[in-house]
Design a binder for these strands. Structure first.
Lengths: 135, 135, 135, 135
DNA sequence: GTGGTCTAGACCACC
DNA sequence: GTGGTCTAGACCACG
């Protein structure tokens, strides 16, 4: 599993965590019935406070994506994959739409917007490939 | 001028304002040498606390985009258009890249990402047209 | 408003708080559109940590019962009364049923259970009256 | 003997066990001098960690309700029935009173509370009958 | 070892 | 002043 926490982009850390966990479940990087990393381990790996991880996990529990097993840990519920796939699409397209609308408001021409989009798409592809190969 | 303030999307209101002022300047919706709306008026129009507008203006002054004229108000500096055009590109592509990278991280396929992008682009176009016509 | 926090009965404090806020809304002790007590004030009054109150409030926000207004506080949403009335019935009857089932399991006779119930009902009535008059 | 363990209602499992053992003794479902089920057997039957059963038994030993016989197991002490009857009444009426007080605090009218009580009583009766017949 | 709750206190953003 | 986030660390319950 690979996490990418950015402490300075304004997005709450707990939100980044819960989101990335959900994405991992959606893409079946974490299987149903499996335990997610323990609060303590993950907090150590990400160098964040355990409470922050706990909050992310609590959020996922509230959504029925994780369930706690006493003394064991938190496991992925049977319905989680479906939920996470929906969630992923929602979250991403929500943000994407926001950006696109801001682009429109900026009075850039259609062409310029389109150009910027394809540039960013391309850039993200290469940066993603780079991160991937560095694992 | 048309502003689009969203009180609930997490983006600070003062930043939405300063950004949209800057975009308006970039697209020459507000001309160099012209006065921007007074804090009082704008805050009334946007149904926002005057301090919030004042803060947005202060930020633009700090960046040299606006300058105060005693007893008159705030006017757009000669260098503002250039600065705002740069700023606009920076801000937009920064956010756009962020979103695209998140899309990559979500393990959606290139196709799915591309489809989502074009959908959002399209959607933003229509919603923008709608808002525009309703002015 | 009167709160009754019990630090030692096993029920999480944040849960007691959110529940009692919800009950207050259900009985219209706090009106729609009104602000609930500030985190800092309530935490001081109840002698609990502000984070504990914040957690209770966050839970109510997640349920759509409260909504935050930046720089102002948290207010009761228009749909809250309805939701809280439903919630109240749910929470109470859930607990009540649990107790009744435990009573059954204890192999007490119907008569003995009924007697115990009416005794407790009576007792709660007088204790409630007492608390009420002592306000 | 029939146990009814609920892993998810917040009540510690070991307490559910010790309580139900005590109730069984109170109603003479387990006779004085008899051995209670072995930790190993009971933990298997209840699908619970042996430590959890051991803890429940330890608690009952501490209260003098069970006593260990080397090489044999744990037996019900002569004073147990009396103690358990007292305990049962205490535990049940304590919880029941708690619920009733919460009902009062919720500002439901006497009538509504009474209605809810009788409903739950009824419901518990039928659910108990059902469980009983399914043994 | 696991998660859950709570405290104390810092810092930020907004009004 | 308001809520929101995060850290640090304690204690509990459970396995």
């Amino acid at each position: 599993m690979f996490f990418n926490i950015n402490q300075t982009n304004g997005v709450p850390v707990y939100e980044q965590i819960s989101r990335q966990i959900a994405f991992a479940i959606a893409s079946e990087g974490i299987a149903v019935g499996e335990l997610v990393p323990s609060v303590r381990n993950l907090s150590r790996d990400l160098a964040v406070n355990p409470n922050t991880v706990a909050r992310a996990y609590r959020q996922l529990q509230d959504e029925g994506i994780l369930a706690s097993v006493r003394g064991e840990g938190l496991l992925v519920t049977p319905t989680a994959v479906k939920q996470c796939k929906v969630l992923r699409k929602q979250l991403l397209s929500e943000r994407m739409l926001q950006v696109m609308e801001e682009a429109r408001q900026s009075h850039l021409s259609d062409d310029e917007v389109a150009k910027m989009v394809s540039k960013c798409l391309q850039k993200s592809k290469t940066s993603f490939a780079k991160n991937r190969s560095s694992l």
